[in-house]
Amino acid sequence: MASEDYERYIRELDELSLSALKETFNIGASRAADSLSRMTGRPVSITVPEVRVVQIREVPEVLGDDIKLGVYVRLSGGVEGHAFFLLEPEDGRRLFDILSGNPMGTTRELDELCRSAVEEVGNILISSFANALSEFLGTVIEQTPPELVMDFTSAILDFALADVGRYSDYTVILRTEMAVEDFEFRENFLLIPDPKSMERIIKTLVEGLL
């Protein structure tokens, strides 16, 4: 099976593959920004500043180990993998203020309403990414309903890392930067694809470039 060598494969990803990935995810990100902008009626920008191959051991160091809000959607079908939208709890409240047109700082508690707004934003972002990816690959990607938790960052992610960890000590992480109007959010969109899907994604993208 190809994933026998998955670790070597992702550790030796060349510039072309990494930039093809980044390019595709940037297109996904701008789609996501458009959807969010339509939903909120405000200008939204999302970019993917980095695609990194990191050791699973170092993930808590790379992403921080504080408590975050996390929206999770599992992808299956054409692409198997785990998608997360992670946000500082404080930014969750700010996001809700923006969405509901309140002055910044109005929302003090992460109540049910605020949590479901964050869940919906995460869902829109993840679906837009997934849809862009499915167009590129010409395949259908199924998605589970979004689930929101508030917990330690690595606790949110570790079952997905366990999935990749069966094949490799390394995983691919892509981070995004999001701004709504003038407010910047320290959020992360993370896609942790199944090794076989990852290989297929890269292969298709690179062939598309050549």
Binding site: I56, R57, E58, V59, P60, E61, D65, D151, F152, T153, S154, A155, I156, L157, D158, F159, L161, A162, G165, D169
Partner: peptide, 23 residues
């Protein structure tokens, strides 16, 4: 201690690990 890692020590100090989910 990171994910998939371990550490030992004696008498003094703290050994910690952050954010065990399914781990």
């Amino acid at each position: 201690v990171g994910i998939g890692d371990y550490a030992v020590g004696r008498e003094r100090g703290i050994i910690s690990t952050y954010g065990l989910g399914s781990c």
